[in-house]
Amino acid sequence: MTRILAAAASEARIALRNRWVAITVAMMAVFSIVLSAMGSAPTGELGADRLSVTVASLTSLAVYLVPLIALLMSFDAIAGEIERGTLPLVLTYPVGRFELLVGKFVAHLAILALAVAVGYGLAAAFAFWGDARAGQGVAALLRLLWTSLLLGAAFLAIGYALSALARRPGAAAGMAIGLWLVMIVLYDLGLLAAIVADGGGFFTTHVFPWLLIANPADAFRLYNLAASEATAAAAGLGGAAATLDPLHALASIMIWPLLGLGLATLAFRRVVP
């Protein structure tokens, strides 16, 4: 435990020095404020309170931004140590590779939590400022907060696995961006295309829902929209899979961080310093 905390403290200090903490917090804050400002117009007519609407917009934002921030923080974790030549020494210390990995994970997740809390906090403040009924959306906001952390945790862990597999920061960065594009953008487009081609057949009814849930980003969106009263405010793929059990989606975003850490540990163990 001491060793994990030592690794986490060291990693957090590095992130602070490298301005990662400032960058992530600023990113979340700016996007949340912009979103709140833009989303302030159509409230009222929907019948939902302003915070619930904000949460629905924040969900769409988080799907893009949280995985991106997580991958940006994690791609360098192991490849960077290999490149700098700091790995051989630390691996001769009485500390396990898994412990080092968990130390980095704890630090990065804490930074992500800070960024997400600041961003959502600002958005919530805006909502309360404009709508007295905003209290109704607090539960949805809290749910968004902790599921965002699970989503971030999943992509942090996947980022470490990529970092260990790539072994060079440049290659790891490329793989991270590629993964983000595939999982966040192309995955949904691919599924949509497949549904259109399938025309309501076996794929649409039996395969598609599971493929949607298998992607942690889609599972995150599904769970939050299904659970939110403002689902109507942000339809899309969520509507297409309205028949899905949100608990399956929740299970997916809970399993992914563990799966990712498992993959990262396996990949890290194969690294020869």
Binding site: T2, R3, L5, A6, A7, A9, S10, R13, I14, R17, N18, R84, G85, T86, P88, L89, V90, T92, Y93, P94, V95
Partner: peptide, 29 residues
């Protein structure tokens, strides 16, 4: 029970010497 000094030893450039050593001390308990 073993200490190692690698050839061309490297450390994270963003940390101070003091922080780096504190880290290594904690790893050794």
């Amino acid at each position: 029970q073993v200490a190692y000094l690698p050839e061309n030893v490297a450390f994270h450039p963003a940390l101070t010497g003091l922080e780096m050593l504190r880290f290594y001390l904690r790893l050794r308990g």
